[in-house]
Amino acid sequence: MAVSTENVVAEIRGWLQENVTGNRDVSEDEQLIEKGVLTSLQTVELVMFMEDRFDIVVEDEELNEETFASVRTIADLVTSKTG
């Protein structure tokens, strides 16, 4: 399933707002792990959402702070898998 980057970004931002930040929108480059926006358990929840929504599998090794640094880096991971 090919999905556009814009679409992935929008979906992830939507999930973050709904499940984490409430009213506040999260920008594409906001540092999610470093700034403590996402806890590790929330990150795992986000992964489960992504696996389900985009029909992808995120490997254990990919679940690290570089790949999940920001909405942009997460979207890159998704698009690299949905190609």
């Binding site: 707002q17 984490v20 930040t21 409430g22 009213n23 506040r24 403590g36 926006v37 996402l38 806890t39």
Partner: peptide, 18 residues
């Protein structure tokens, strides 16, 4: 309208995530 989102936003900005 949207009070829950406002509350959540405030809580995230002013409290630890857990």
């Amino acid at each position: 309208e949207g009070a829950i989102d406002e509350i959540r936003e405030y809580a995230v900005n002013n409290g630890p995530p857990y």
